[in-house]
Write a protein that binds this DNA or RNA. Sequence first.
DNA 1: TACTATAGTGTCCCAGAGACACTAACAAGG
DNA 2: CCTTGTTAGTGTCTCTGGGACACTATAGTA
Lengths: 222, 222
Amino acid sequence: MSEIRVTVDVVIFTIQEGALKVLLVRRGIPPFQDSWAIPGGFVQEQESLDDAARRELMEETGVQDVYLEQLYSFGDPGRDPRGRVVTVAYYALIAADRAVRAGSDAAEARWWAMNQLPPLAFDHDRILAYALERIRNKLEYTTVGFQLLPEAFTLSELQSVYEAILGRSLDKRNFRRKINLLGILTPSRQQRREARARPAQLFRFSADRFEKLKDKGILFPF
Amino acid sequence: MSEIRVTVDVVIFTIQEGALKVLLVRRGIPPFQDSWAIPGGFVQEQESLDDAARRELMEETGVQDVYLEQLYSFGDPGRDPRGRVVTVAYYALIAADRAVRAGSDAAEARWWAMNQLPPLAFDHDRILAYALERIRNKLEYTTVGFQLLPEAFTLSELQSVYEAILGRSLDKRNFRRKINLLGILTPSRQQRREARARPAQLFRFSADRFEKLKDKGILFPF
DNA sequence: TACTATAGTGTCCCAGAGACACTAACAAGG
DNA sequence: CCTTGTTAGTGTCTCTGGGACACTATAGTA
């Protein structure tokens, strides 16, 4: 009767070479053979939707404890030619320094820049568009941007994450003023020295100060 | 194997007596017999999730063409003691003058004020809390508030909708200034005369001006 | 005609955000 | 060691949006 196959698809974002990238897997079998698709799989009998998404993420990238959030559910009849499938889409943010492995199993997997995507299977273009919209919005009133950086980072690196996601350049002084005003960064004692340039101060995200602000109901305009 | 029952639950909001109310149905059978629940039902084989939500809304209230938006999907194993059920939650906004019928079928149904809810079945308290959070947020950057009013309304009525949803009182002059600045209301020629008081100007929501602003990427701060 | 109830209106002040240009510190190469 | 190239870091002005705040206008009713 009304039993439907339920999958989770996980849009996995990271930052590479100053660009926002997404992990896609190549389909080895029909339908949409050789097309690229968002990694996903069936929800098991005894796991929650969140757990299923975490499991998929682990299988594809080997990482745990990253930012993961439910996005939207897609369930048009006919979105999968094999039969009725409802997918609960998630998106995940992986710090630049942890996004090493791409694809544990045999399937081909690689990172794609969001502005140069291949043709996608199923309705995955819609899902990706929606994920991009969501992360752009969240960037403006939350601290998701920090999830894409290693523990210690420079202000320039943080700014380039924002620019990569928003797709436009930001004013350096205005950006730093806003970050300072939030008061959620603690300077590290160290500096990062790049070749042939002035060293930059390293900072860490201070979650405790962030929690205090959140408890007071203060949001985070960017 | 991995077939799961999928339902849609629709949180149906309206404004009555200056308060935000939600439509709940009394469960006639176990589990949670005699508890109150969000109206919902199984997704049929050949309908989209949106269609299923629309159908539920029609069955419960007899209304069509109202604001309807997907909220979130809830799928913890054990949320329904009878077995694995994933529910895709929606919420709907019904204009005050259309929210007449409550419950077409035999089941008992009634409107409950959001600040005086009865004990709820399943995880429906979570769903309701999330719906309230969503509509509060959306109120601040969209025009969902207008969906809860009849076609012609006074500024005082519009303000009381905002106050009912946000749960706090707003300043009359600041509120009117903001509405004016948006420029999305066209004054009607008529007035509404209440007993024993000065008549109020009636306005209509002008969707065309709204669309123009939206196309320019202008959002709606409240 | 006085009383009551709701409609309608303007100013001041503060905070957040955008536009804008120069100096500082390091490395490499001559 | 001095010049050049590259990135880091810093302050002001101005505009706009939002919050706080109190009185007059118009109707009905007693």
